[in-house]
Design a protein around this nucleic acid. Structure first.
Lengths: 372, 372
DNA sequence: CCCTGATGGGAAACCGTTTTCGGGCGAGGT
DNA sequence: ACCTCGCCCGAAAACGGTTTCCCATCAGGG
């Protein structure tokens, strides 16, 4: 089981190193019979070419880097599933960069860049400045952004249509008769959260409702903070209290629902809650969460595909004995920015607006002396 | 920004390649002044040695492989955080192998083994046969198992003390006065689940309670199945119905709680539920989940440390200009199997056993004609 | 003053693969 | 039968580092 080199295989097969190499890279220049023989010898001895040597000689690796902000997010995990599916199929491996600590970020990029260790970079949900990435990209390293988008930056990217998703969520609520709709935000440094908030505001306005600043609460994806802010929401007098809440993520929605329960409010009878993401548990909790589904694994797949065909032609890796692998892939059309549709998943956490105070304000007009 | 090689640096610094290389590997054989000068040139030109060339020449990489069964599990994500923390600190990168599809498993192992791409392997929550890993290990590739343990296999491993955790959970329930305690199992192919189940049975027996097979339900970590089986549990006549449920994971517990709610049972008043894991949301749901905490990120850290010092002495990577880096690490004592303690986190999902049918059966004895 | 030993630095072999280039050999045309 | 191709395969030069070995130099001691 000692390390077998290409030379050993050549000797064993009675040919030269170069022939073995040509077989490895299935060049047409080698006689089919020879090829079969060499392949047989390789298989018999369980030969696998040295990764390092190949990388050095070829000047590139079959590795793609993936930088993520921790894996604990459901989104990242799901995206990875999609990415893994396609990279694996084409013989690429993934190097994972967990970009938790900001300080090393610069040196990380440096390493990635110059060591030419990866032949492509996938960047998921990025909070860091994008300039270094642009730099990498213009140095020739394929980069694609996932769920990270910046207006001014011309990097290929795939995102969900967060704005449209927010619109859809709000329409759902609006059609159920809600008028006082709160918004509990995620991390507003993310473009996706900004888009969702824009959607929230626009939907409100185009329904003729003036957004009430009181009803927008920061959450930052922090459960504790979300609960605290939600409590404020639910502690409002009945005529100012929201009858529905648009949460910027499913886990945010969970925390909102918890706060509602603590305030003695029932979901959806007293207050409707809609989430964003459609994580697995959304269907399992009580009540099942109505939410906007993001196609995470598809996003991962598409991103990986974009990256792969930016990297260039990749011959089939294992050089199996199969014939006719020439499936005509869809020609990689220029699509620097892919935004994927979201969809409304209706479950049970949203119901009609409570009729306590009916359409044209009853209790309300009497209690407020002179203001309208 | 064209690729800078060691030769360029040598020329720029007015020394030979070998000197530059010696500086890179901070050998003591180079004059401090020369070293400083070379370092300065390297830094000025943002030189980073070619990953592939280094790997080829050295015969090893600063890469460790991590094979995981998908990232969507909270456990895997948390473990990765720990792993990333320590690998990053010592300049290692992680190659992620998502072992979703079983079929390619053999060839995956082959690739890992022979291409000598990684210098160590971390295997998390493994469902596959372990022989290939043993093979790898005896071929000299450091391997450590995380949350995967097999009695007969002599691979280094770190796990949580699942048996003890189960005992603790059961004791908690027992002390609250519960006697009819159900168990909803996880994937029993995992040793951890087997251990938890052993703990369940033993705790029951040592409390003088004969385990009722009716109260053990398979769950397999599948929400749908868990709910279905839980429904069966809660549909039992009152005198046979469990007053508490030990779930093999937190998400299992969620599904159990959902089923309870559907059956009109309150938690913890009518039925207590205890989980296992202590995932983030456990504190956020209603009611907050009492559970057994597994130290996932610590497990990841320890596993990574074990792996790293099995890999051997690793000089500081970037050769900074600091002096006196010789921190005396704790000498890697022989600890092939590390089992880490779990801890009980008491929240609100477990309460005293309902007194409906008090200690020596009241309603029960009247309703059941002749049985006791 | 010469010899010795230590020490910093250079030359070159090597790691395992790719890739270019040239040559041997068989077949086909005239 | 000879020449001309064309097709395969072998020889050798990269790829960018590491590492061994040896030489030059300088200091110190006899």
């Amino acid at each position: 089981m000692a390390k077998l080199t290409i030379r050993d295989i050549a000797a064993l097969a009675g040919v030269s190193k170069s022939t073995v190499s040509l077989v490895l890279n299935n060049s047409p220049k080698v006689d089919p019979a020879t090829r079969r023989h060499v392949l047989a010898v390789m298989r018999r001895n369980r030969y696998v070419p040295s990764f390092a040597a190949t990388a050095l000689a070829k000047g590139s690796t079959r590795l793609i880097g993936m930088v993520v902000p921790g894996l604990s997010w459901h989104m990242v995990a799901s995206i990875n599933i999609g990415v893994a599916a396609v990279t694996e199929r084409s013989g690429f491996d993934i190097i994972l960069y967990t970009a938790t600590n900001d300080r090393d970020y610069g040196s990380l990029i440096d390493r990635i860049l110059t060591s030419s260790m990866v032949s492509g970079l996938l960047v998921v949900s990025h909070e860091q400045p994008l300039e270094p990435l642009v730099q990498l990209h213009s140095d020739g390293l394929p980069v694609v952004l996932v769920n990270t988008i910046d207006a001014d930056v011309a990097l290929p990217s795939v995102t969900a249509d967060n704005y449209d998703g927010a619109l859809t969520a709000m329409d759902h609520l609006l059609q159920l008769g809600h008028e006082r709709i709160a918004c509990v935000q995620g991390r507003m440094v993310y473009r996706c959260c900004q888009d969702r908030y824009r959607g929230y505001l626009d939907a409100l306005r185009s329904a003729g409702i003036q957004p009430d600043p009181e009803l927008t609460k920061p959450g930052d994806f922090l459960p504790e903070q979300i609960r605290a802010r939600s409590r404020e929401l639910f502690a409002l007098p009945a005529d100012q209290r929201p009858t529905a809440v648009f949460a910027h993520s499913d886990v945010t929605a969970y925390a909102v629902m918890t706060a509602a329960a603590e305030a003695g409010l029932r979901v959806p009878e007293d207050v409707s809650v809609i989430g964003f993401d459609d994580i697995e548990s959304a269907a399992q909790i009580r009540p099942p969460l109505t939410t906007i589904q993001q196609p995470f694994v598809d996003m991962g797949k598409r991103a990986a595909e974009m990256l792969l065909d930016a990297i260039g032609p990749t011959d089939e890796p294992p050089a199996g004995e199969s014939a006719g692998e020439s499936v005509g892939d869809e020609p990689a059309d220029e699509r620097p920015r892919l935004v994927m549709p979201t969809s409304l998943i209706v479950r049970a956490s949203c119901g009609p607006a409570p009729v306590t105070r009916s359409p044209r304000g009853r209790t309300q007009t009497t209690t407020t002396p002179a203001k309208a």
